[in-house]
Design a protein around this nucleic acid. Structure first.
Length: 341
DNA sequence: AACTCGTACAACCGCGCACCG
DNA sequence: ACGGTGCGCGGTTGTACGAGT
């Protein structure tokens, strides 16, 4: 039973968008609003897949999109959220409303992944530091005794999360002279030339959009700096202490994987109470967890949105105090996409 | 100048989910 | 309950560009 293709493969144009196509797309959205992408190609005569149109709009033409270099703050938020949520780019993007999930994903894959790798190497080289203590906390967290009661387990988990948060906070602290992140901070800006490809320059469309955006103050001068400086990456000698390039493979579970596995649902399932692990399939377990979470929320009649927790955590670096129990249950329910702004 | 290689990023693809009739 | 449709998401690919040789 094959899936129906979103559009006819025959006659559908692929590749970079032209200014003309962008104008057509923008004027259509201007008239009809975003949505009904299926009908867009036929109504506008664009030889593009509806999906492609939606992607083009959401990632590049939509008003309020910020292009160009990621700030330190943005970078930090991405790192923290990635550690917490994993590759949930859409969820991460909801905390950076001016950035698209695609943008963040690309930035992670091309810049931050390498940085984290380097940090791992540095960690291997220099031994104990904040990252080490973080991983210690995570190890502790992951080895939570499955036989403990749910309440005990949650308290332990909450304490572990706070410990991990604290360690992560220290690890990411710019003030900390021993933090490997100081290597990241050593910026070596090198303005590369503006790309000549149309697709990477939003200036044309920004100009186009200005006519109808009205209040939008999206950056229209970003095309000058739209090429992110690849030299944001640490310029320190990347060779590992023992000469082997791949320290990550030696170090066992990486920091990110550790976080992912610990905060992801799978690990929640594996270390959750007996009551929860009685269900047969992983899907059923996940469902059971969700039901359990919902039940607890109803019991307490207090719903603390994930967005609030993360907002507090991310934006107020000094808050490392213990969160209410409900935070934990909400934290695990990733289904809820936060919208802060 | 020509070629190779690495990087950055735009775009595509396949899957899953929600909604609706 | 079920199938069709539309949309969103995450992973992957394609390609332009700059640096190095």
């Amino acid at each position: 039973m094959g899936r129906v293709p979103c559009c006819d493969k025959v006659g559908v144009k692929k590749g970079p968008w032209t200014p003309e196509e962008d104008i057509i797309l923008v004027s259509y959205v201007q008239q009809h609003g975003p949505g009904n992408w299926r009908a867009l190609p036929t109504k506008t005569g664009l030889s593009r897949c509806s999906k492609s149109c939606r992607l083009r709009w959401t990632n590049y033409l939509r008003p309020g999109i910020k292009r160009g270099n990621f700030t330190d703050q943005e970078e930090k938020v991405i790192i923290q959220l990635q550690a917490l949520l994993g590759n949930k780019w859409a969820a991460i993007a909801s905390y950076l409303p001016e950035r698209t999930d695609n943008d963040i994903k690309n930035y992670w894959n091309t810049h931050l992944k390498k940085k984290m790798k380097k940090l791992d190497q540095l960690d291997q080289c220099h031994g104990s530091n904040d990252l080490f203590s973080l991983e210690n906390g995570l190890t502790h967290l992951s080895s939570s005794n499955s036989s403990t009661s749910r309440g005990q387990w949650e308290r332990t988990l909450q304490a572990d999360i706070n410990m991990a948060k604290k360690a992560l906070h220290n690890a990411l602290s710019h003030e900390n002279p021993t933090s490997p992140h100081n290597y990241i901070k050593q910026e070596n800006p090198q303005v590369s030339s503006t790309t000549t490809t149309y697709a990477s320059s939003t200036e044309n469309i920004a100009r186009l959009l200005q006519g109808w955006m009205g209040s939008s103050n999206s950056s229209t001068n970003n095309s000058e700096s739209s090429k992110t400086s690849s030299n944001n990456i640490a310029t320190t000698d990347s060779s590992s202490c023992d000469g082997t390039p791949n320290a990550e493979s030696k170090g066992g579970m990486g920091l990110m994987e550790a976080f992912e596995s610990l905060f992801g649902l799978e690990s929640f399932e594996s270390s959750s109470s007996d009551e929860l692990s009685q269900t047969a399939t992983p899907e059923a377990e996940t469902e059971a967890i969700k039901i359990e979470i919902k039940r607890e929320e109803n019991e307490h009649d207090v719903e603390v949105p994930l967005s609030v927790i993360l907002e507090n955590w991310l934006l107020d670096e000094n808050t490392l105090n213990i969160q209410p129990k409900n935070d934990l249950t909400t934290l695990i329910s990733f289904d809820e996409t936060p919208h802060l702004f």
